[in-house]
Design a protein around this nucleic acid. Structure first.
Length: 581
RNA sequence: GCACCCAUAGCUCAGCUGGAUAGAGCGCUGCCCUCCGAAGGCAGAGGCCUCAGGUUCGAAUCCUGAUGGGUGCGCCA
C-alpha cells in the first residue's frame, strides 16, 4: 500500500542478496538505510543513501556499493533507471505504471487510502483541553482542543485504538471559587446588588446559572452561611460549566470519549493507592524542599512534608505530594489520574498542554515512568500561545477588562473549518499569530480556501463532465486506461498522491498533524497547476472532447486527488467543500 | 537564579528525526482568460539557516557555549 516501504523492502532485499553473494561483508546493520523522495525531482523518483551509510562498516567505497546495488535493483520491473550520483546517492527512476497503479489503488480504497496498521491496534489515550470547569473555553484552549482532536484522528487513521479524554479539575479550590461566584449571581437573581471581591469570578456567563439556582432552590439559601450551600452550588456550577464547555467543543465538532473527574479520586483510596505504588518502589519519603531560587519568598520556611523522588526519573527537583498540614497537593491527584490511565491498560499516553504548563512536563513524565516502570511512554505536546489579530491590531485578553476572547467568539468570526485548519497549519510548539481578517480572505493567502478550492474544482469538473453525458462514477473511472496518464505533469500529480500514505505515517509517528495540512496545500498546488496546463494543451484538459478514454483517465486522476484531500481534511476535522459559494 | 520552547527570504512559516543547488505563501517586478471557476497559473529578484566551537563522508537538522525572544518556576490551582 505504501510505495515507499515497498521500495525500501526492495532495497533491503537487494542488499541482503549482495551479502549472500559475498559482494558485501556479513553482519551489516541496515537500520539506517532510508528510501526517500529526492528534494529535486530531476534526481529521479526515489533515492537511497544505502551506499553512504554502509560504506564505512563495509570498508568499501560508497560508489562501489551503489553500483552493485544499482545493478541488483535494475532487475526489478518497477525500476527503469538507477544512477549513482553525488557522494554515493543512488537515484531510482520508476516506471510510470508504478504511479498509475497507485491512482488505481487510491480510487479503489477511497476514504481508506493511506490508512495503515502501523498503530497495530495499540491503545493510545490522548488527553486534551482539560480546562478548569469554571467558564467557557477561550482562545488559548482552542488550539489545544483542535490539536488534540486532529492528533487523535491522525492516530486512528494509522491504526491506533484511540481514546479522547478530558480531565475535569473539579477537586480543587477553584471550584469553590466558582461556587461562591454562583452564589453571588444567585443573590443577584433575587434582586440583591452584589459586588465581586477578589477571588471570585465576576463574569456574565454565571448570570444564567444564578437564575437557574433561583429556579431550583427558591430563596432557601439567601441568608444562609456558606456551609449550607457550598457543596450543592459547587456541584451545580460544575455541571453548568461542563455543559458550556461541551457546547463549545461541539462548535468545533469535538466529541470526547471520556470525561474523567478529579473528584472521583478523593475519598476512594485512589490517591493513596497510587502513592503506595510509588512508595513500594522507594520513591516516597519525608523531607524538606529547598526554597525556590530567584524569587524572594518572604514567607518561606523549610517544612517537612511528603515528597516524590521524581529526580530518579528525570525531574530537576523532587516534588511535594502532600502539604505540611497533610492535605494533598495538586500533583497528588494528577499522579493518581495517570496511575489510573496506566491501570486501564493504555500502551501509550499523550497529553496536550498549554505553554503555561510547560513546567509540569518533567514531573508528569517522571510520575508515569515510575508508575509504569518505564513501560508506558508519555508524550506531552505543548501548544504555544495564540495571539489574535484583527485589523492589524492585537486582541489582548484580560478577564478584568472584560476582553475575554472565547472559543465561541473565534468560531463565530471565521467558522469551525477555518479555525481548525488555520490552527493546524503550524507546528504546535511554535507561537501563533492568528489574523482573523486573513482567515476570512478567499485567496491563495488563505490555505484553507486554497485546499477547499482545489477540491471544489475537481467536483466542478466532474459535474461539468456529467452534464456532457460522461460517466464519472468510481467504477467507470477505476476501469479507465491509466496508462494514458504519461505526461510529466500528470505523473507529477500522481507522485504526490502516492506520497500520501507515507506523509500520514510520518505525521503520526511524530505526533504532528500540521504535516497533513502542509501536504494538502502542496497537493492542492499540484492540482491547480495541472488544471491550468489544460488551457494550453488539450490532452491535459480533464474533459477532453476528442478522446473519451483520455477524459476518463484524467478524471480518475482528479478523483484520486479528491480522495486524498477528503481524507486529509477528515483527519484535520474540516469538511471538504464540493463547491465554493 | 533555574527549567522548558523558539530563532530559516523584507513579513508569516515549512523543511520528511543527518543528505545533493535550503522551500512555500504574502509583498515586490513581469507575463497568462475566444478556454473545465483568473477565487487561479507561470517566471524573476530576494539567504553567511542568530553567533562561535564540536561530532563525520556530509549539519538548518545532533552536542556544547553564547546572544535575543517567549512560557513557567514554592505546600497556588
Amino acid at each position: 500500500m505504501n510505495l515507499f516501504t515497498d521500495i525500501h523492502t526492495l532495497v533491503i532485499d537487494s542488499l541482503t542478496t549482495l551479502v549472500a553473494e559475498g559482494v558485501l561483508p556479513e553482519g551489516l546493520d541496515f537500520a539506517n538505510v532510508a528510501v526517500e523522495p529526492p528534494r529535486d525531482a530531476a534526481h529521479g523518483d526515489m533515492a537511497t543513501n544505502a551506499a553512504m551509510v554502509l560504506a564505512k562498516p563495509a570498508k568499501m567505497k560508497p560508489r562501489d556499493i551503489a553500483t552493485a546495488l544499482a545493478a541488483k535493483l535494475s532487475d526489478d520491473a518497477r525500476v527503469i533507471g538507477a544512477e549513482v550520483a553525488g557522494p554515493g546517492f543512488l537515484n531510482l527512476r520508476l516506471d510510470n505504471s508504478v504511479w498509475q497503479d497507485v491512482l488505481g489503488q487510491a480510487l479503489a480504497a477511497g476514504a481508506k487510502f493511506g490508512r495503515s496498521d502501523v498503530g497495530a491496534g495499540k491503545r493510545v489515550n490522548v488527553e486534551y483541553v482539560s480546562a478548569n470547569p469554571t467558564g467557557p473555553l477561550h482562545v488559548g484552549h482552542t488550539r489545544g482542543a483542535v490539536f488534540g482532536d486532529a492528533l487523535a484522528s491522525l492516530l486512528d487513521f494509522v491504526g491506533y485504538d484511540v481514546t479522547r479524554e478530558y480531565y475535569i479539575n473539579d477537586g480543587g479550590a477553584q471550584v469553590d471559587v466558582l461556587a461562591r461566584s454562583c452564589y453571588l449571581r444567585y443573590l443577584e437573581a433575587h434582586g440583591q446588588t452584589v459586588e465581586f471581591p477578589d477571588g471570585t469570578y465576576p463574569a456574565d456567563y454565571l448570570k444564567p446559572v444564578g437564575e437557574a439556582l433561583k429556579e431550583k432552590y427558591g430563596d432557601q439559601f439567601v441568608d444562609q452561611p456558606e456551609e449550607a450551600w457550598l457543596a450543592e452550588f459547587r456541584l451545580f456550577g460544575i455541571e453548568a460549566m461542563m455543559d458550556l464547555i461541551r457546547e463549545d467543543l461541539a462548535l468545533l465538532n469535538i466529541e470526547m470519549d471520556h470525561f474523567f473527574s478529579e473528584k472521583s479520586l478523593y475519598g476512594t483510596g485512589k490517591i493513596e493507592d497510587a502513592l503506595k505504588r510509588l512508595d513500594g518502589k522507594g520513591l516516597i519519603y519525608r523531607g524538606v524542599l529547598e526554597p525556590p531560587k530567584g524569587k524572594k519568598p518572604d514567607d518561606w520556611e523549610p517544612r517537612e512534608q511528603t515528597l516524590f523522588k521524581s529526580t530518579d526519573h528525570g525531574d530537576d527537583v523532587d516534588r511535594a505530594v502532600q502539604k505540611s498540614d497533610g492535605a494533598w497537593t495538586y500533583f497528588a491527584p494528577d499522579i493518581a489520574y495517570h496511575n489510573d490511565k496506566v491501570e486501564r491498560g493504555f500502551d501509550a499516553l499523550i497529553n496536550i498542554f498549554g505553554a503555561d504548563h510547560g513546567g509540569y512536563v518533567k514531573r508528569m513524565k517522571a510520575a508515569v515512568s515510575a508508575l509504569s516502570d518505564g513501560e508506558v511512554p508519555l508524550d506531552i505536546k505543548l501548544c504555544q500561545l495564540v495571539k489574535l489579530f484583527k485589523n492589524g491590531e492585537e486582541f489582548k485578553m484580560s478577564k478584568r477588562a472584560g476582553t475575554f476572547v472565547t472559543l465561541r467568539d473565534v468560531v463565530d468570526a471565521v467558522g469551525a473549518d477555518v479555525t481548525r485548519f488555520m490552527l493546524l497549519t503550524r507546528k504546535n510548539d511554535q507561537g501563533f499569530d492568528f489574523d482573523l481578517d486573513k482567515a476570512l480572505e478567499q485567496s491563495k493567502d488563505n490555505p484553507v480556501f486554497y485546499v477547499q478550492y482545489a477540491n471544489a474544482r475537481i467536483h466542478s469538473t466532474l459535474r461539468k463532465a456529467t452534464e456532457q453525458g460522461i460517466a464519472v462514477d468510481v467504477d467507470t473511472l477505476s476501469a479507465a486506461d491509466l496508462t494514458l496518464l504519461s505526461d510529466e505533469a500528470q505523473i507529477s500529480v500522481a507522485r504526490k498522491v502516492a506520497e500520501w500514505p507515507r506523509q500520514v505515517e510520518i505525521a503520526a509517528r511524530t505526533n504532528e498533524p500540521h504535516r497533513v495540512a502542509f501536504f494538502l496545500y502542496d497537493l492542492a498546488s499540484e492540482l491547480h497547476g495541472l488544471y491550468h496546463l489544460g488551457k494550453s494543451s488539450e490532452n491535459l484538459r480533464f474533459v477532453n472532447e476528442s478522446s473519451q478514454s483520455a477524459t476518463h483517465a484524467n478524471l480518475a486522476l482528479a478523483r484520486a486527488v479528491s480522495v486524498v484531500i477528503s481524507a486529509g481534511l477528515g483527519i484535520l476535522g474540516v469538511k471538504p467543500a464540493e463547491e465554493m459559494r
